[in-house]
Write a protein that binds this DNA or RNA. Structure first.
Length: 440
RNA sequence: UCCUCAGUAGCUCAAUGGCAGAGCAUCCGGCUGUUAACCGGAGGGUUGUAGGUUCGAGUCCUACCUGAGGAGCCA
């Protein structure tokens, strides 16, 4: 009796009869020889069907079979130097579970397609080997991030998705009807995990966040996932170290366990192998100096003025100076969020950090030490014109046993895009939500 | 929201203001080692929408629609 197996494990069954359950990826015919390529989600393998070696109904079932028809195939595994994966399957039986109709063939051919067409068929596009590999890397990154925190005594505490108010007043929110009230989809779990950090010490959240920004770039989605740690008694330096450890752990894990997928995607692995601690740390002041030098040298189009936030070309230029992620800390407080602790040495600066990924992938982590003082926080809320009553509970955290604490958020999609070396974050999530796309 | 670009067969793209084309996919035929297989044949079109200029518009003009790339904002 043939053993049920997957294509990824087929090498362990050399010389044996196996059963593969999957789909027809492609079919090449050469007279009385058929070369069907099967995929099952774990990989692809070429079958060989000679007319005089199989029952007529088996040959007829495969001859002319349409792309992406679902099939259960039985055959004998044979090592073959000509096969890209090292093995071929001598088919001796096949069951067509569902045949894709000739009149309405599978739309995504092996030839090239445009972005719009592929996005319109995202539900089918995810079947392609490259997209499937990206989703496997994404899953590995999420697993590695969660293992990193779980192994260090962090507790996963999930913040709500439906929230009564903005976390950061500046960004746009998606409103939703909540019975007789208006609620908003969360744009960060941070404020809530500050509360659970005061309860449990070290916590993190992992979940979707929503931002109704009309951003139309390769780095933006309206719905994206973040992993956010928050640590009681931690300083900015503590969480910079934590961020550095998280990134190196994730990259290392992908190199260990998803090397084959990264190769399928065509990632330059040597770039990832350079990602080791310690990462360069520069202050905002030093970054400004580098940006102004960059302008002098003609590498940047506009001269960076001290006091502003970094734009995308600025981040790209800074990151290009290093072969590993660079941590930029202590930005001017006025360009940053209301909850950030001022630097005691320079109160005009915030104790915050952005981690910029190499190769132009931009900010993948943003974090800070949070304001500890009740009065100062209340003042900032007023300065930012935020509704104080909505933040009453948040202010309570400074009233009842307030401590220095810090945390950061890492955007999963940007991390995936960087590690996979993708042009656009839309390929890093199964069904991206963007300014101009809600379907499928 | 702003700037730039694009929209022609199911897909990817051609077509100087003058007959609407190719490759892939589909269908028919051929091929016993193919690697996005190849070879021969067939079918397949409201050129994004609405106006306008012109003897004549896929091509030029106007508006709109849809999408892409970028900016700002952000992870």
């Amino acid at each position: 009796m043939a053993a049920l197996t997957t294509i990824s494990d087929i090498g362990t069954h050399e010389g044996q009869a196996v059963i593969i359950r999957g789909w027809l990826y492609n079919l090449r015919e050469s007279g009385k020889l058929l070369f069907p390529i099967f995929r099952d989600g774990t990989g692809t393998i070429q079958g060989v069907v000679a007319k005089n070696a199989v029952a007529p109904e088996v040959f007829d079932a495969l001859k002319g079979l349409t792309q992406e028809s679902s099939v259960i195939v039985e055959g004998k595994v044979r090592a073959d130097k000509r096969a890209p994966g090292g093995y071929e399957l001598d088919v001796n039986n096949v069951q067509v579970v569902q045949r894709v109709p000739d009149s309405d063939p599978y739309p995504i051919s092996l030839k090239e397609h445009g972005v719009d067409f592929l996005m319109e068929h995202r539900h089918l596009w995810v079947r392609s080997p490259r997209q499937a590999a990206i989703l496997r890397v994404r899953a590995e990154i999420i697993k590695a991030a969660r293992d990193y925190f779980d192994d260090r005594g962090f507790v996963l505490t999930d913040p709500p998705i439906l929230t009564p108010a903005a976390c950061e007043g500046t960004t746009t929110l998606f409103p939703v009807d909540y019975f007789d009230e208006q609620a908003f989809l969360t744009q960060s779990g941070q404020l809530y995990i500050e509360a659970t950090a005061m309860a449990l010490g070290k916590v993190y959240s992992f979940g979707p966040t929503f931002r109704a920004e009309k951003s139309k770039t390769r780095r933006h989605l309206t719905e994206f996932w973040m992993v956010e740690p928050e640590v009681a008694y931690a300083t900015l330096d503590d969480i910079m170290e934590l961020a550095e450890g998280l990134i190196t752990t994730i990259v290392q894990r992908c190199l260990e366990r998803r090397r084959r997928e990264l190769e399928t995607i065509g990632r330059d692995l040597s770039k990832l192998e350079q990602v080791t601690a310690p990462f360069p740390r520069i202050t905002y002041d030093e970054a400004v100096k580098k940006l102004q030098e960059g302008f002098e040298k003609g590498a940047l189009e506009t001269k960076f003025e001290y006091g502003g936030d970094l734009g995308a070309p600025d981040e790209t230029y800074l990151a290009s100076q290093f072969d590993k992620p660079v941590m930029v800390h202590r930005y001017p407080a006025k360009v940053k969020a209301f909850y950030m602790e001022p630097d005691p040495q320079r109160p005009d600066l915030a104790l915050c950090v952005d981690v910029l990924a190499p190769e132009g992938y931009g900010e993948i982590i943003g974090g800070s030490q949070r304001i500890g003082s009740y009065e100062q926080l209340r003042q900032r809320i007023q300065e930012h014109d935020l509704p104080e009553e909505a933040f009453k509970w948040y202010l309570d955290l400074r009233k009842y046993g307030g401590v220095p604490h810090s945390g950061f958020g890492m955007g999963i999609e940007r991390a995936v895009a960087w590690i996979c070396g993708l042009e656009h974050v839309r390929e890093t999530i199964p069904f991206p939500r963007m300014l101009h796309r809600m379907y499928p």
